[in-house]
C-alpha cells in the first residue's frame, strides 16, 4: 500500500516537473514570438547573440542563487561579490600578475566570502538573510576601501578580449556561460552534492539525521554562489575594461527573479539549473525586446515586476492542484 502511494506520488511529481518544464519554456517562446512580430531587428543573429551576452552575468549569478534557494536560504552578497572579484583581479593585473592568475585570485576571494557565509549559516546557525545581508554591506565596504571609491581602469587588452572578442563568430562570454551552466547543472542533478542540496531544503533535520553532511553541503552551496558571482564580476569587468567598486548593485535580486521564474522555490527544496537558464533568458529577452519596441523604461519595470509575480503565482496554482 505504502509502495503504491509512493509510486503515485513519484508519478505526479514527475508530471508536475514536466509541466513546469513546458510552461516556463513556452513562456520564453511566446515572448520571442511576440517580439519578433513587433520588431524586425529582434530575430537577427546579431541581436540574439547580444541578448545572450547581456544575459550572461544574470544567468551566472542566478545559478548560484538557485543552489542557495534550494537549501531554503538566500544569498544577498552576490552583487557585492561581483564588484569584489572584478576589483581584486584588476588590482592584481595592474600589479603585473598574469591575467589568468589575477582572475583566479579574484574568484578565490569571492569563493572565500561564500565559504564564510556558509560557515556562519551552518555552524553559527544564523539566518541566511541576515548573514548575507551583513556580508553584502561588508564586502561592498571592503571593495570601496580597496579602490578608494574610484573604478580601476586601464586594464590589459587581453583581459578585454575575454569580454568582447569572438570565437567562431560567437562572443566569448557565451562560451563561459554555457560551460558553467553545464558544470553546475551536472553537479546539481547528477552528483551527491546535488542530491544533498535538495535534501537540505526539503527537510533539514531529516537530511542531517539520515547522514547528509549538512554543514559541508551548505558551505559548498554558498561557495558555489560566491564563485559564480565572481565569474559574473570578471565577465562584466572584461566587457567595460574597468572594475568599478559599485558594480553589481542590486543584481542579487535579478538572480532571485530568474531562479523563481525558472521554478525555484524560496521555501527551499525546489529548483533546477535548466529552469534558471530559461528564467534568466526570460528576463534578458524581456529587457531587450522591450528596449527594441521603444517601451518606456518606467513601464518596463512594471512589466518585469508583473512577470515575476505571475510566474510564481502560476507555479503555486499548479502545486495546489
Amino acid at each position: 500500500m505504502s509502495e503504491l502511494v509512493g509510486k503515485i506520488q513519484s508519478k505526479s511529481l514527475f508530471d508536475s516537473k514536466t509541466k513546469q518544464f513546458f510552461s516556463t519554456i513556452s513562456g520564453l517562446f511566446i515572448l520571442i514570438i511576440i517580439f519578433s512580430l513587433n520588431n524586425e531587428n529582434f530575430l537577427t543573429t546579431a541581436n540574439l547573440l547580444n541578448v545572450a551576452v547581456q544575459t550572461t552575468p544574470i544567468l551566472l549569478i542566478a545559478m548560484g542563487q538557485t543552489y542557495v534557494l534550494i537549501t531554503g536560504g538566500i544569498d544577498l552578497s552576490i552583487g557585492s561579490n561581483i564588484a569584489l572579484a572584478g576589483v581584486t583581479a584588476a588590482i592584481f593585473m595592474k600589479a603585473g600578475i598574469p591575467i589568468p592568475i589575477a582572475m583566479l585570485l579574484g574568484l578565490g576571494v569571492t569563493a572565500g566570502v561564500g565559504v564564510l557565509n556558509g560557515v556562519m549559516i551552518a555552524y553559527g546557525k544564523l539566518p541566511p538573510f541576515i548573514v548575507t545581508l551583513g556580508t553584502m554591506t561588508t564586502v561592498r565596504g571592503i571593495t570601496l576601501t580597496m579602490t578608494q571609491g574610484i573604478p580601476i581602469s586601464g586594464l590589459p587588452e587581453a583581459f578585454n578580449n575575454i569580454g568582447i572578442a569572438k570565437t567562431l563568430g560567437i562572443p566569448n562570454p557565451i562560451f563561459i556561460m554555457v560551460i558553467f551552466a553545464v558544470i553546475f547543472g551536472f553537479i546539481l542533478s547528477k552528483t551527491r552534492t546535488g542530491r544533498y542540496t535538495y535534501a537540505l531544503g526539503s527537510n533539514f533535520e531529516a537530511a542531517r539525521l539520515s547522514g547528509v553532511n549538512a554543514h559541508m553541503t551548505l558551505i559548498k552551496v554558498y561557495m558555489f554562489s560566491g564563485i559564480l558571482a565572481g565569474v559574473a564580476g570578471l565577465v562584466m569587468a572584461a566587457r567595460i575594461i574597468s572594475a568599478p567598486p559599485t558594480a553589481g548593485m542590486g543584481y542579487e535580486l535579478d538572480a532571485v527573479a530568474s531562479s523563481v521564474i525558472g521554478g525555484a522555490s524560496t521555501m527551499g527544496g525546489e529548483g533546477a539549473i535548466f529552469g534558471t537558464v530559461v528564467g534568466a533568458f526570460i528576463i534578458g529577452v524581456l529587457r531587450n525586446g522591450l528596449n527594441l519596441m521603444g517601451v518606456s523604461p518606467f513601464i518596463q519595470q512594471i512589466v518585469i515586476g508583473v512577470v515575476i509575480i505571475a510566474a510564481v503565482f502560476f507555479d503555486k496554482l499548479r502545486h495546489s492542484k
Binding site: P244, A247, N288
Partner: peptide, 12 residues
C-alpha cells in the same frame, strides 16, 4: 549610472 546597463541600452 551602472556602466553595464548603459552598455546594454546603447547596444539595443
Amino acid at each position: 549610472g551602472d556602466k553595464q546597463k548603459a552598455l546594454n541600452y546603447a547596444t539595443d
